[in-house]
Each structure stands twice: as C-alpha cells, then as structure tokens.
Design a protein around this nucleic acid. Sequence first.
DNA 1: CGCGATATTGACCTGAGTCAATATACGTGG
DNA 2: CCACGTATATTGACTCAGGTCAATATCGCG
Lengths: 231, 231
Amino acid sequence: MCDLKLRLYILGRLPFFSGLPDSKIRDINALFSERGYAMGEIIYFEKSPAKRLYAVADGHVKLMRHTVSGKDVMLNVLNQGEFFGSLTHAQDDNYSETAHAHTPVCTLSIEGNDFRQILSRHPPVAIKVMDIMAHRLREAHEMVRLLSVSSIEQRLAHVLLKLGDKLGEADDVGLLIQLPLGRSDLAELTGTTTETASRVMSQLQKEGLIQTGRRWVAITNKPGLAALTEI
Amino acid sequence: MCDLKLRLYILGRLPFFSGLPDSKIRDINALFSERGYAMGEIIYFEKSPAKRLYAVADGHVKLMRHTVSGKDVMLNVLNQGEFFGSLTHAQDDNYSETAHAHTPVCTLSIEGNDFRQILSRHPPVAIKVMDIMAHRLREAHEMVRLLSVSSIEQRLAHVLLKLGDKLGEADDVGLLIQLPLGRSDLAELTGTTTETASRVMSQLQKEGLIQTGRRWVAITNKPGLAALTEI
DNA sequence: CGCGATATTGACCTGAGTCAATATACGTGG
DNA sequence: CCACGTATATTGACTCAGGTCAATATCGCG
C-alpha cells in the first residue's frame, strides 16, 4: 500500500523528525511497520493497551470517544502526516480514545519503546513532540470553552473553519473540505444531534456562508463564518 | 515568601525534575525566581506573550478562559507542586489562558529558554514532561466528552470526584475538598450558571452524596457520586 | 450586630433534544 | 444509461433541561 518512497516522505515530514538527517530517517524507517485499513475499520479501541505510535500515511483517521448510551464524540480528524496513539507509553497505559479509519487508510506505526529510545537520543525531537502536544492541548481547551459557552451555530462555525484550514482546497464553489463529512460527523464534532446539525447547516447555507450537500461541505464566506465564532 | 528549603523541596518534587541528582537541582534552582501574589491577583493574561514556565510553590492557581460576553470557563485548578505557563516557548507564542491566584499564591518561575536548555540536556526530563502533557490532554478530552454528552448533574459529579482525588482530605464530615469553592467556581468548571450549580448541589446534598456550604464542599458518598458519572 | 458577598428559590422562557414522517442524492445492477 | 433502493438529509411538532431575571435568605467577616 505504501512504497518505500512514500514511507520516507511521510516519516521525513512528521513534524518531530523534520530536521533529522536522511540517514537517521532511514534508520528510523526500519523501526516502522505499515498497515492498511478498510474504510470504517478500527485501528485500535479505547481502553485497549496502548502499545504503538501511529502516523497517517494516507487517508483520514478519526479519534472517537464512546459512551454506553451510544452518543459518540469525535475528538479530532487526522490528515496525512499526522500522528496518533501512544506517545507516552507509560507501560500499563491504555488508549484513551478509539481510532477509526474514516476513509481507506494506510498507517505507519512504531513500538512505543522504540519511539522512547529515539526521543532519548534526539532531544530536539522530544521538544518538537512537546510543542505539538501543547498545540493539541490548546485546541482541546478551546473546544472545552466552546462547549461551555457557545451555541451550536457557533460551534459548527468554529469546527468548519478549523477543518477548512486543515483540509480545505479552493474550488469553484468555495473552500471545499477534502473529507467526506456527513451530518452525523458534524454532530459528533460539536456535541449535538444529526437533526440539529442539519437544521443549522441549512441555516448557514441560507445565509450564504457555506455550500453543502450529501457528505460534503464548502465554505463560501469565511469572514462571515468567522464573525459567528466571536463569543 | 518561600525560603530556600521550600524552593528546593518544590523543585525536587516537580514531576519532571524528580530523579535528577540534588546538585543538578541546586543548579536549576538558580534559574528560578520566586514571586508572591495576593488572592485574586492575575499571574498572566490570556494572549499576552508566553515567556515563562511557572510552578505553584504555595496556594492554588486557576487557569481560566474568558469570553467577551463575560462567561468565563475554568480549565483547571492547580495545587502545590503543579506547573503551568509556557512549556513550549515557540518564540512568538502567547498564553492560551489566564492564570489567576485563587488563594494567596507563591510561584517559582523560569525563563522559557532556560527551561528548553534543561530539556535538551536531560532527555528523561523531556519525557516526563511529555507524559504529564499526555495526561492533561486526556483530561481535556474527557471534559470534551462530558460537555458533549452529559447532564449538568453528571458533570458536577465528575468535577467533584476529580477535585476530591486531588485536594480531598478526610474529615469528620467526609472527604473535604481543601479549596475554597463557591457556586460560581463550580459553574465555571462545568459550563453552567451559578443558579443551576446551586440547584444541582442542593439536590446532591439532599441525596446524601455531598455536604456543602458557603465556599466549601465535602464528598460523603463517593461511590454514589461515581455512579452518577457512568454515561 | 449589621452589612455585603454568597447562596437559594421561584416563575418563566428558549434552545436544542426527541420522535416521526418525508424527501432527496447517490451507487448499483439490470 | 436509467431506475431502483438505500443511506442520508430535511422538516415538523412536541417536550424538557437548563438559562434568565428577579426576589429573598443566609453566612461570616469586620
């Protein structure tokens, strides 16, 4: 599924390895193994023992938390080049979320202990990892604030803008989000129901801020959407 | 406010320095400067340039996010020995939250660059920091899930249990949370209003799960509270 | 003891959840 | 290439948790 060229490309672009010499990356490459997943397949389950660190070589991975009542929450959608899974490997740790192949996915993954060794040997790598975690922590805190104080319309606007920045490509209809994104996905991302997500999306479309259809969304008025998020 | 003995004690117990030899900690100590804050004083503002890493030497610090509408969100309450502020110091970064002295507070703080140097020289320290960040990220994700799917009663139960674990001391009335905690604090922690927080707290008290009064809370039936959080 | 900050309580209102019926896009196979 | 069937999306009517506004009660400090 991924050939050697893609592997080296992906690994070299992983934010924490960027800056390492090619030869090092080749060494590190040997520690990674690759695997493909069909759409909808589960990469790992919440609460199973956290053993590996993954990188998305191709496709999109969503990180979910489940509840017994069946209302799932999507914490993040990851794009090519992003990583997930066990960064920390404090032995007996378990994954705190479920990783789901949202599209067909190819991953590269490394044993937690091996990754720790890399960290010990390359302090700049460790610092990069910290920076990324700090960034993710900020995003999570931002989401906490949003969920605490804003309306669903505001949350949706925020999520769409984030996704637009991350996965948007200019298109004749607007900034098209390159990810199949249904109403239920939007609901899981904003802590609401598919019905409410649908209503609000229709509203946003009526206001000319977005264009949307079956499992796709495009942003047509970014400043307008951004204005909604000002709480 | 903090004498040398306390400083060394606090620094030595900071999770990321634990394990370093005493002599090293003395060196590191020289890089830290101390400062006291009156109750309610602000340690740093959200969006101001993030220059320093802080540790709580004494008192309690709350990390807040503000909104223009005035509805604030409390992201965390920090106890003696916990750290906050700029871990990452990617130069032009700004603080993503406001740090508030919830009680009289004494902090030890270090210049971001100096901390980075320590990280580079001591890989195990960097790995410890990563572990802590991973833990905080989990907590934030857990809060996202709670805010997305649970009732206010469930969120309150969860927050109280967390605080009980972190700051609880056995007492004749129950597990007393060692932190002045008013209804508005609880509201900011759970994304609701003081009125609703008040109603739910009364309810929990009526059910015999907690005891509460003016700015204090004790848990009297921990399993009972825990049962509420199962979503 | 009296005052101000904190907490409670009530009445009312609204955003969003729920349940249910209907409409529409898209992939598939004939 | 079209028609069908299914997954997805929309829309409506109703309900309710929790927000809002406002009045009252209470704690604990000076």
